[in-house]
Design a binder for these strands. Structure first.
Lengths: 339, 339
DNA sequence: CTGAAAGCGCTTACAG
DNA sequence: CTGAAAGCGCTTACAG
C-alpha cells in the first residue's frame, strides 16, 4: 500500500494525502476526514525509507554499547537503565535501533557513519571500559548523544551518571559510623572511568575521616563476580587483613563474600558493601548492603534529556544522579553487635 | 557524502559506483580499486533509506516483546537469550530494531504494518502472556518470524523453546529419587503457554511415578518473586503441607524460599526446585537447585534459523531445546541426609 | 566494461 | 483549498 494508491482511492493527489499525513492545516475538513478514513481502513503507514529520505526526522534512536568490556546487553545494571529508557522513549514515539552488525566496517568501528547511514534522530551510548575513539567522533558531531556512565562533551551531547564520589562517601561514612577502621577497596579495571571516580572519592572521604588509605588494600577487578573473589583472596592473604570491604559493584562484593566463606572464616567478622543494588543482592547470604544507583531515574532522565536535545529544547545537559545507601545484613548495626 | 559525490571524485558514473557497492563483477579492476579507495577514504556508506527504498533487503531485524506481561526488556531469562541472539545476528551482519514506539498506532497494535514500515528482513518475537492477535497476523505474513517461547505456525515462521514437559520430568524425577512424595507445583498465570505446558508435564510425570496430584497443591503466580512468596504461604497454611515444591521460575522459587524462612520453619525441611537458572539462583541461600534452560543455545538457534529463513534456505523450522538439571543445595542428596 | 535514465515512495515549495 | 513536478540517494535493466 503506497501513498499513490491511497490518493487514487480517495480521488485526490498524492500531495494532499501527504499533507494530511503531516498535519498541514491547509486541507479541507471533509477531504481530510475522508482520506483519514481510507488510510485507517487499509492500515496504511508511510514507508520509513521514503520518509527518511526526504525528511530529517526518523523517530528512531540508536543504541550503542561502547567499549570493549563491561557494557554487555545483559549487564545487570545497564539492562535496567535501558529498560526504563526504552519505555520512556517508546511513550514519546520512538523506536530503538541497537547497533550489533559487526560487518558494518571491515576494520575499525565508525559510529558516526552508522548513525548517518540509518539517519537516526539521536543516540544513547552505554559506556564500558576502553571506549573506541570513534565514540568521541560521534560525540562531537551534529547528532544528539546521551552517554550513560560516559562523560560526553560535544555541543549536542550530554551524559547521565550517578555521582560516583558520593557513592564512596556513603559507603565510607556507613563503615565509619559502625566503627570500622580497616577498610579495603575493590574497584574495576584501572582504565575504567567509573572505577577511577569511585576510587578517587574513596580516598578523599577516607582522608576526611582521618582513616588510613593503604595501597595494599586497593585492588582492581573487572566488575564481575570472579574478579571480586580473586581480589578478596589477595586481601585475606595479607598479614594485616582488612575487616571492611567496599566493592565497586555488587557482583564483586558477592565474589568477596564467597572468598571469605570459602577461606573458612566467619562472614560475620567482615563488613561488606557493594554497589548498584542489582536484583540478586537482596537474595544472597547475607543480604548485601549496597549503594543503590537509581536506575529508573537514570534511564528516564536519559530519555527526556535526549528527546529535548533532539527537539532543540536544550543543549549540553548533564546530570549527576544521587545514590542511596541500602542497608542489609552484610554491613549493619545489628550485625556489629554480634561481634 | 552521497554516491553522486563519490562518482564525481572518481570520475565515473553513479551506476558504476553502485555496481561496486553491490559487488557486480562487470566492473574494471582498476576502476573498482580506485573507487573503493575513495569510498574508504571518505568513510562513505550508502544511505539506508535510499537503499531500502529500492532493494528488498535491509539487514535489519525487528524485535518484538509481545503480550501484556512477563516479557519485559529486562526479564532475567529473555535478556540472556536476546544477548546471544544479538551477538549472533551481529556477526551475520544484522542490526536490531526494538519496537518500543507506543504511538505507532493510536488504538490497537499492528506489528505487520510496523514491519512493513521499516521494511525489516525478519522478526524475533518474545512471547509473554496474553499475546495480541496482531502477532499472529505477522506470523501468517510473508515476513520471516521466529518465536521465543511462542509457538508460531506461519509458512515463514518458526519457534525455539525449551522442551517444557522435559523440564517438569527432570524436576519430578529428582524429587522422586530423593524420596520426596508430597510435591507441589507453582506455575505462572493460567493464560501462560509455558506454564500450561509445564503443569501438563508435571501431572503426566507424577502419574508415571504413581505420585498423587493434589489440586490444592497446584498454585498459579506470575513468574515473579512476590507471587512465589504468596503461593508458598498458601501452601504452608494448608493442613497437609507439601515438603517439596517445584516452581516454574527461579524467581518464584526464591519467593517460596523466603516464605518458608519467614514462616519460621527450617528451610532444611523443604526441597525446592526452580526453573531457568538465572544468575541470582547461584548466590541465594540456599543455592537453588533448578532446571536450566540453555539460553545461549536458544538465542543462537533463533539467530541461525531466522537467518536461514530470511535467505530462503529453510522454512517452517521449530526446535525444542533440551533442559538440564542443575543440582544445588535447595534440593540435593546431601541435604536429604541432614533431615 | 561503462553510463544515461527510470523508478522506489515519499515531501515540499510553488502555482493556481 | 488542491495538485503538478522536482528531488531525496540509491539500484537496475538496457543500450552502447
Amino acid at each position: 500500500m503506497t501513498i499513490k494508491e491511497i490518493a487514487k482511492l480517495a480521488g485526490v493527489s498524492q500531495a494532499t494525502v501527504s499533507k494530511i499525513i503531516n498535519n498541514y492545516d491547509d486541507v479541507g475538513a471533509k477531504t481530510k476526514e475522508r482520506v483519514l478514513g481510507i488510510m485507517e481502513e487499509h492500515g496504511y503507514r508511510p514507508s520509513y525509507a521514503a520518509q527518511s529520505l526526504v525528511k530529517k526526522v526518523t523517530k528512531v534512536v540508536g543504541v550503542i554499547y561502547a567499549g570493549k568490556i563491561n557494557a554487555n546487553f545483559n549487564h545487570p545494571f545497564f539492562v535496567d537503565v535501558m529498560s526504563m529508557f526504552k519505555k520512556t522513549m517508546g511513550a514519546e514515539g520512538y523506536d530503538l535501533l541497537f547497533f550489533s552488525n559487526e560487518k558494518f566496517h571491515k576494520n575499525n568501528e565508525n559510529y558516526l557513519a552508522r548513525c548517518q547511514h540509518y539517519n537516526v534522530d539521536g543516540c544513547i551510548i552505554i559506556g564500558g571500559d576502553e571506549v573506541e575513539p570513534s565514540v568521541y567522533e560521534l560525540d562531537q558531531s551534529e547528532i544528539p548523544c546521551i552517554g550513560i556512565d560516559l562523560p560526553l562533551s560535544g555541543k549536542h551531547s550530554g551524559y547521565i551518571m550517578t555521582d560516583n564520589a558520593k557513592i564512596s562517601a556513603l559507603a565510607v561514612e556507613h563503615f565509619y559510623l559502625l566503627g570500622e577502621r580497616n577498610i579495603a577497596f575493590i574497584g574495576g579495571k584501572k582504565t575504567s572511568n567509573i572505577s577511577t571516580e569511585r576510587l578517587h572519592g574513596f580516598k578523599e572521604v577516607m582522608k576526611t575521616y582521618g582513616l588510613p588509605v593503604k595501597e595494599d588494600w586497593i585492588k582492581h577487578g573487572d566488575f564481575f563476580e570472579e574478579s571480586g573473589f580473586i581480589a578478596m583472596n589477595e586481601l585475606l592473604e595479607q598479614e594485616e587483613c582488612p575487616e571492611a570491604v567496599f566493592a565497586a559493584s555488587d557482583l564483586m562484593a558477592m565474589g568477596a563474600v564467597r572468598a571469605i566463606k570459602e577461606s573458612g572464616r566467619k562472614i560475620e567478622d567482615f563488613a561488606v558493601i557493594g554497589c548498584d543494588d542489582i536484583t540478586a543482592s537482596r537474595y544472597i547470604d547475607p543480604p548485601l548492603t549496597t549503594v543503590k544507583q537509581d536506575k529508573d531515574k537514570i534511564g528516564k532522565m536519559a530519555a527526556y534529556v535526549l528527546k529535548d536535545m533532539i527537539n532543540n529544547q536544550i543543549e549540553q545537559t548533564s546530570v549527576r544522579v544521587e545514590p542511596e545507601l541500602i542497608i542489609r545484613e552484610s554491613c549493619s548495626e545489628k550485625k556489629r553487635q554480634l561481634r
